[in-house]
Design a protein around this nucleic acid. Structure first.
Lengths: 118, 118
DNA sequence: TTGACACATTCCCATATGGGAATGTAACAT
DNA sequence: ATGTTACATTCCCATATGGGAATGTGTCAA
């Protein structure tokens, strides 16, 4: 088997940097394809192909308006990725605790140094 | 250009489901390769190759112990991904607000219905 | 030294990619 | 009907993949 398709899930879809940029760009409000093309200085077919991938995994929504097609990020579809990374948050907390302990220990040493007139 | 290498960054590395499983498995404590092979019922070369990718992007650390090699997830390397997804948190909040508003509106309607004896 | 063990790497291959170029298609204007 | 605009799709291709199989490498035991 080769690598999984970019359309297999959100994790594969966001592996591409340009697609992450587009998702961020379309998070605040919907925009037509032409604006994305201008904003990122990409070829139009390239943008359309990225949007196609993002649509296939539900990361963006599309709405027709005349001959324009307005795309918008479906922020809910990013939650599974956020949730997966959050599994590791407790370990970050542990590391923060250790950093804090070291800082406090260092503070005590500094106090000692200060007290000893060093 | 083809797709970016799996070793180009953490986003590409975690696109593979098995590698996400391995990262979760190695988050709590370090383990030798043989344990990963057994836990996931994968071929040893396959596991080694996934670990190689994860090492190249800094998602796991390796330590030698005799003829074993102990791997452990470097949880800090997952933060950039978490941070990227967090950009969208404010929009989740907005959606939650709307859900809350709808729930409250619905509650008022229910009260009205109750009051009207319907 | 020889053998066994624990991993890593290499080779082969079907498959999927992203970019460029060209082409297809639907909506609007005249 | 014809042309233009706004996108989508297709074709081509260099490149990277993950799995299977085979092989290489370093460590320990006898």
């Amino acid at each position: 088997m080769a690598r999984a398709a970019t359309t297999s899930d959100a994790f594969n879809a966001i592996a591409e940097p340009r697609r992450r940029d587009i998702l961020h760009y379309l998070a605040a409000r919907e925009r037509p394809v032409s604006e994305i093309v201008q904003a990122f200085e990409m070829e139009q077919p390239s943008v359309s192909k990225h949007l196609r991938v993002l649509r296939d995994v539900g990361l963006v929504r599309m709405r027709c308006s005349g001959r324009q097609k307005l795309y918008k990020t479906n922020v809910e579809a990013i939650r599974p990725i956020h949730d997966w990374t959050s599994q590791f948050a407790r370990y970050w907390q542990h590391q923060l605790d250790r950093v804090k302990e070291r800082a406090e220990a260092k503070g005590r040493i500094s106090d000692d140094e200060t007290n000893s007139g060093n």
